[in-house]
Design a protein around this nucleic acid. Structure first.
Length: 471
DNA sequence: CTATGTAAACAAC
DNA sequence: GTTGTTTACATAG
C-alpha cells in the first residue's frame, strides 16, 4: 500500500508553532490524533461538535471539565468497557459507545492523526460528588461488569482496520521525514484488509488507551485491544507481543500506571495516558530507554552472563521500586492509593521536584523538555486561557465533594496551590534537558540511590500536592 | 545512531 | 501464571 506518506496539511493546527518551534529533532513524536479540535479561543465553549446526547449522558458520569485536571486525579476515572465485545463496531463512527465518550472520530485517526496539536484538556474526566472510594469502587465495578475478563476473541477475518490504509504512521512535527514504517510489512500483498501497516506498539497502545474511557485500561484489555485491532497478536503461539506491550507500557513515558491496585483481582494496575501524551502524543519508547551503551560492538565477550546480569539488574530495580510503592501504601494507606500514579519510567528528574513544593501538576519530565521551548509551551499554553497569565501557577486542587462545576478551573479555591514559579523559568532548572544526549531515563545510579535515600518515594509517586485534600 | 521489536531475568502478587 | 521493570540484543533505516 501507500509507502508514500502524504503529509497532513501542516496548516491544520491552530497552534502549530508551539510545537514547530520544538527544535529538538530527537523530540520525535507521534502527534495525537485529535479527537477534539482545539479551539484556543473557546476552550470552555465546547465549540467542537459535541453530540448532544453525549453531553447528556455525560452528566454525572463523564463530566469533562474544561481543563486543569491534574492527571493524577485518579479518582476521576470511571472505567468502563472500552468497547463492548463482538457487537462493538470496529468502525469508529459517530455512534456513541457506552462510555459516552464522543467517538465521532473518523478524523481522529489519520489524516488528522499526525497533526501536531495539543489536545484539549477536556478529555480529562471528572466526576460527580461521590466520595473517592465510591468512585474507585464504581470504577472497578464498572470495569468488571462491562469488561469481563473472559474476553471474547473476535474473529479477525474481515477485520476492518480503524486506522486504515492511508495511515502515514508518523510524521514528525517539523515535517521531518515520517517515522520509518518500522515493521512495515508489505508482504501480505494481497490479503484484503491485511493490516500490513502495523504501527509501533507504543502508538497502538496509545490508540487503545485513547479509545478507553478515561484513557485508562488494564493490561488485559490492552491485550484484547491488540487482539481485536492489530495483527501483533495474530501469532498466538508466542507471547512476545504481550511482552512487548508490557515493555512499552513500562518504558514509555506516555503511559502511566494508576496506582490503584485492586486487591481482589489480579488484573493489576490500570494504565493511563499521561496528560502530556494526550496533548502531545506518544513519543518513541526509545527515548525512555536507558542510554547505556548498547555494547553492540563487544557483545561477543560473553553475552550470556551479560544477559543474565541484565535480568538481575532489572529484577533488582523492579524490586526496589515495588518496595517503594509498597512502602508508600503502607505508610499512607489511604491517601497514597488513589492519588498516586506511578510513572513507569523512573526518572532522575523526579528528585528535582521536591515534595515541599506543591506541584500543581506532576512535572512532565518526559514530555516537556525541561528548560526548553517545549517547557514553556507546556506551562503557558496547554492549560487554557482560563488560567490566565498565571497558568502555571494555578491548579486547583479539587475537592472530592465539590460540584463538578467547582472542579473546573474556575474553582481555584481555598486550598489552591500556587506555584511560585515564573512561568518563564524552567520548572526544573537542575534537571537536564532530556535530549538525544540525555535520555529521560535514570542513567545515574547515584541519583537513583539518592531517590531511595530520600525516603523512597520521590521516584514514583507524586501525592504530596494532594495531601491536603479534604478527604 | 535511532526506533523498534523481542527475549529474558527477576520480583511481586 | 500474570504483571511490571529493566536490560540486552537484533534489525531496519
Amino acid at each position: 500500500m501507500a509507502t508514500a506518506f502524504p503529509e497532513p496539511a501542516p496548516s491544520k493546527g491552530p497552534r502549530p508553532s508551539a510545537f514547530m518551534t520544538l527544535n529538538d529533532s530527537t523530540a520525535m513524536q507521534w502527534a495525537p490524533h485529535n479527537d477534539f479540535p482545539v479551539d484556543p479561543a473557546g476552550q470552555d465553549g465546547f465549540d467542537y461538535d459535541l453530540p448532544l446526547h453525549f453531553a447528556q449522558q455525560s452528566v454525572g458520569l463523564y463530566d469533562y471539565t474544561q481543563n486543569g485536571v491534574p492527571y493524577n486525579h485518579n479518582y476521576n476515572l470511571t472505567y468502563s468497557a472500552p468497547y463492548l465485545g463482538p457487537s462493538c463496531p470496529r468502525s469508529y463512527t459517530n455512534d456513541l459507545d457506552l462510555t459516552g465518550l464522543p467517538m465521532n472520530i473518523p478524523e481522529s485517526y489519520p489524516p488528522a492523526a499526525y497533526q501536531i496539536e495539543p489536545q484539549t484538556p477536556q478529555e480529562a474526566m471528572d466526576l460527580s460528588d461521590q466520595g473517592i472510594n465510591g468512585q474507585l469502587r464504581q470504577l472497578r465495578e464498572d470495569y468488571d461488569n462491562q469488561y469481563p475478563s473472559n474476553i471474547k476473541q473476535e474473529d479477525l477475518t474481515g477485520y476492518n482496520s480503524p486506522y486504515d490504509s492511508d495511515i502515514t504512521r508518523s510524521s514528525t512535527p517539523s515535517g521531518d521525514p515520517p517515522m520509518p514504517p518500522h515493521g512495515y510489512k508489505n508482504d501480505g500483498a494481497g490479503e484484503e484488509g491485511a493490516i500490513d501497516k502495523e504501527q509501533p506498539y507504543a502508538q497502538l497502545i496509545y490508540r487503545a488507551l485513547k479509545e478507553a474511557p478515561g484513557h485508562t485500561m488494564i493490561l488485559r484489555d490492552i491485550y484484547d485491544w491488540f487482539k481485536k485491532n492489530t495483527e501483533k497478536a495474530a501469532d498466538k503461539e508466542t507471547k512476545g507481543w504481550q511482552n512487548s506491550i508490557r515493555h512499552n507500557l513500562s518504558m514509555n513515558g506516555a503511559f502511566e500506571k494508576v496506582d490503584y491496585l485492586c486487591e481482589e483481582s489480579k488484573k493489576g494496575f490500570m494504565w493511563r495516558l499521561t496528560e502530556e501524551a494526550l496533548r502531545e502524543g506518544v513519543k518513541s519508547t526509545t527515548r525512555y530507554r536507558s542510554k547505556q551503551p548498547n555494547k553492540r560492538g563487544h557483545r561477543s565477550q560473553n553475552p550470556l552472563p551479560q544477559r543474565q546480569a541484565s535480568g538481575a539488574k532489572g529484577g533488582q530495580a523492579a524490586r526496589r521500586s515495588a518496595r517503594m510503592r509498597r512502602s508508600n501504601r503502607m505508610n499512607e494507606p489511604y491517601r497514597s492509593e488513589p492519588h498516586n500514579f506511578s510513572r513507569s519510567v523512573p526518572s532522575a528528574f523526579d528528585t528535582t521536584y521536591n515534595t515541599d513544593t506543591p506541584m500543581p501538576y506532576p512535572p512532565s519530565p518526559y514530555y516537556s523538555s525541561v528548560g526548553s521551548e517545549a517547557d514553556l509551551d507546556y506551562s503557558k499554553d496547554d492549560f487554557g486561557s482560563a488560567l490566565g497569565g498565571a497558568s502555571l501557577a494555578l491548579m486547583p486542587p479539587r475537592s472530592f465533594t465539590g460540584s463538578p462545576l467547582s472542579q473546573g478551573m474556575a474553582a481555584c479555591g481555598d486550598t489552591g496551590y500556587i506555584l511560585e514559579l515564573d512561568p518563564s523559568e524552567p520548572l526544573f532548572t537542575n534537571s537536564p534537558s532530556p535530549t538525544a544526549d540525555e535520555p529521560r531515563t535514570p542513567d545515574s545510579r547515584g541519583r537513583w540511590e539518592e531517590d531511595m535515600a530520600l525516603g523512597g518515594c520521590a521516584a514514583y509517586t507524586f501525592d504530596t500536592p494532594y495531601s491536603e485534600f479534604p478527604l
